[in-house]
């Protein structure tokens, strides 16, 4: 049993090819904590979605060369906490509406589904946005015993 808090960190250039590395990183940690296969998949997908958002949107229009994505994972006795962090332009979480899927799908609108999925897949989602400095999406999943 894992009792003590442990931290893991992964810092990667923002390339879609790295999504696979991010997924494997969190999946392995979740697996070691004893999450079910179904929940490991949910965690992998949520982190993929958050990372994809960073890769696609966070640094749009930014000239800086320092375009990185950081994934910080903290394991607690009862939960897994995953932060996806960037230093890009940030976003206003209140402006990202939960789409009404019926209407959304009928309009055949693509994209923008990531945050909706994250909320559905994880137990808790928190945002801390400091544009150009540190934007953090924190996703929490509890171990149900």
């Amino acid at each position: 049993m894992m009792r003590k808090e442990k931290k893991f960190q992964l810092k990667l250039p923002i390339e879609t090819a790295n999504l696979e590395i991010v997924r494997e990183f969190v999946a392995r940690i979740a697996q070691n904590m004893g999450f079910s296969e179904e929940n490991i998949h949910r965690i992998e997908l949520a982190v993929d979605e958050a990372s994809t958002n960073v890769i696609r949107h966070a640094y749009k229009g930014a000239a800086s060369n320092a375009k990185f994505l950081t994934v910080e994972v903290t394991t607690h006795a009862d939960r897994l906490e995953i932060d996806v962090i960037d230093a890009g332009k940030g976003f206003d979480p209140d402006q990202v509406k939960t789409p009404e899927m019926d209407v959304y799908l009928k309009k055949m609108k693509r994209g923008g589904l990531g945050l909706y999925l994250i909320k559905t897949l994880m137990d808790k989602v928190e945002y801390k946005i400091k544009p150009g400095k540190k934007n953090r999406v924190r996703m929490i999943k509890y171990i149900v015993t």
């Binding site: 997908l45 994809t52 799908l105 055949m108 693509r110 999925l117």
Partner: peptide
């Protein structure tokens, strides 16, 4: 084996 919303977006992008 795996699909994310980026994959679903492809289906949405062509159906119309």
């Amino acid at each position: 084996q795996y699909i994310s919303s980026a994959g679903l977006g492809v289906f949405m992008g062509v159906i119309e």
